[in-house]
């Protein structure tokens, strides 16, 4: 009577064998029907990518180019399909962005190209693909990752954008600074119940939620940095654009509030170890606009100081802020026409577009720096919850 003795890990080759007719079941269970919020929460980060790659390794081992091609095509199409269906769900998009990147890294790490093998163990090198060069497929998967990244940004923007004006401009957290409301301004009433209720804290909580989801999914740290930089760009651009359109936002006290909010955003970056990701720099136009609200705006020296300070703002933006500037109390005055003329004259020779509003839809180009994994493929076990019992560890 045969006894089922489990094989030792060292006996596995880090491949998963599957029948051609099970390919559909594989992508269905692993991609189309996997719920990032349910089963996937307890998976090791990137597990779907490793599983797909281990299946691919087996097809490569069989030297079956057709099997390799159809697996890659089904994988890519299934990822596209799930993103079409659930593309507005940040968790789903983040999950497949990180898995697509992991799959791409695996294709490089095990390609046999010495450039990608520097950090591999001896055993990992033995697991390189043996028959096929998938460089062209790597390009396709990299294109797919770019598409998913853009979708992630859109998804994040849809959640974040409605919070920005309220949290960054309208809501006041510094008590006593604007005790005196700018003259002639009335508080805007909100037409939608939720409007105006977001605070800087809700923005920070949302940023933390995005960040923690991406970390849970094992997103590459370099990719997280790019997402955060893009988030900060959107926050800065939307805030500045609204400031440029609203007189009630152009006061000394709003300048104070914005600077405080920016410092809180910086604090968030520091807390997450993201100070060097370029996110803070994207806020520079907003920071300068806030400073512009607070500096003296009277003498020629003031004009000179403003021109040398506001290098991240266009002339149109500087002039607009000065025109909109509204004194908060009787000790202040409106900015004189003569002063604005002086500024315009000084900035005449600047080479720039006459751009007033920032492009809130701009997306920085994304890159996916190679990030090999030390995980040994032969140790990977497939949880029964994935319903992939038809795969055989080889």
């Amino acid at each position: 009577h045969p006894v089922n003795i489990p094989r030792r890990e060292k006996d596995f080759q880090g491949m998963l064998e599957y029948k051609k007719e099970d390919e559909l079941k594989l992508v269905k269970n692993l991609i189309l029907e996997l719920k990032p919020r349910g089963v996937a929460v307890n998976l090791i980060p990137g597990l779907p990518a490793y599983i797909l790659f281990m299946c691919l390794r087996h097809a490569d081992y069989l030297n079956d180019d057709q099997k390799v091609r159809t697996l890659l095509t089904s994988t890519i199409n299934s990822i596209k399909k799930i993103l079409k269906k659930r593309g507005d769900d940040f968790e789903t998009v983040s999950f497949w962005l990180s898995n697509t990147c992991r799959f791409l890294h695996c294709l490089k790490q095990y390609s046999g190209d010495p450039a990608f093998m520097k950090h591999n163990s001896q055993r990992q090198n033995e697991h390189s693909l043996s028959n096929f060069d998938l460089a062209e497929y790597r390009q396709v998967i990299s294109d797919l990752a770019i598409q998913i990244y853009q979708q992630l940004i859109k998804c994040m923007e849809n959640i974040l954008q409605p919070m920005i004006v309220s949290g960054m401009l309208e809501h006041e957290t510094i008590q006593g600074v604007s005790g005196v409301k700018p003259t002639g301004l009335r508080k805007r009433t909100s037409s939608i119940a939720d409007e105006g209720t977001d605070t800087l804290d809700s923005i920070l909580r949302q940023l933390s939620a995005f960040h923690s989801t991406m970390c849970q999914h094992g997103t590459d740290p370099e990719l997280i940095k790019q997402v955060v930089k893009q988030q900060f760009y959107i926050i800065g651009a939307v805030t500045l654009n609204n400031l440029l359109l609203r007189k009630d936002m152009c006061s000394w006290s709003k300048g104070m509030q914005i600077r405080y909010n920016v410092s809180q955003l910086e604090e968030w970056l520091r807390d997450k170890g993201l100070m060097t990701c370029g996110a803070k720099e994207t806020l520079e136009p907003l920071i300068q606009a806030a400073q512009l609200l607070q500096v003296k705006k009277k003498t020629d020296e003031d004009a000179e100081a403003i021109c040398s300070m506001c290098l991240a703002l266009t002339t149109a933006q500087i002039v607009k802020v000065l025109n909109l500037y509204t004194p908060v109390n009787e000790f202040e005055e409106r900015v004189s026409v003569a002063f604005i003329r002086t500024i315009q004259t000084r900035l005449r020779d600047r080479c720039e577009t006459p751009q007033l509003l920032m492009d809130t839809k701009m997306i920085y180009p994304v890159t996916f720096p190679f990030n090999p994994s030390s995980l040994a493929l032969e140790t990977i076990q497939i949880p029964t919850s994935l319903n992939l019992g038809f795969l055989t560890r080889v």
């Binding site: 390919e23 559909l24 992508v27 269905k28 189309l32 180019d65 390799v68 091609r69 159809t70 890659l72 095509t73 089904s74 890519i76 199409n77 299934s78 596209k80 399909k81 046999g112 090198n125 033995e126 390189s128 693909l129 043996s130 028959n131 096929f132 060069d133 998938l134 460089a135 062209e136 497929y137 390009q139 396709v140 294109d143 797919l144 598409q147």
Partner: peptide, 30 residues
Amino acid sequence: RPPSRPRVLLKAPTLAEMEEMNISEEEESP
């Protein structure tokens, strides 16, 4: 075990072409 012969380059369609290929997963049962 590194292979003794060079790997065969698999030509890949573009992402858009791939979508038009109407691969099996499109035929999944409801």
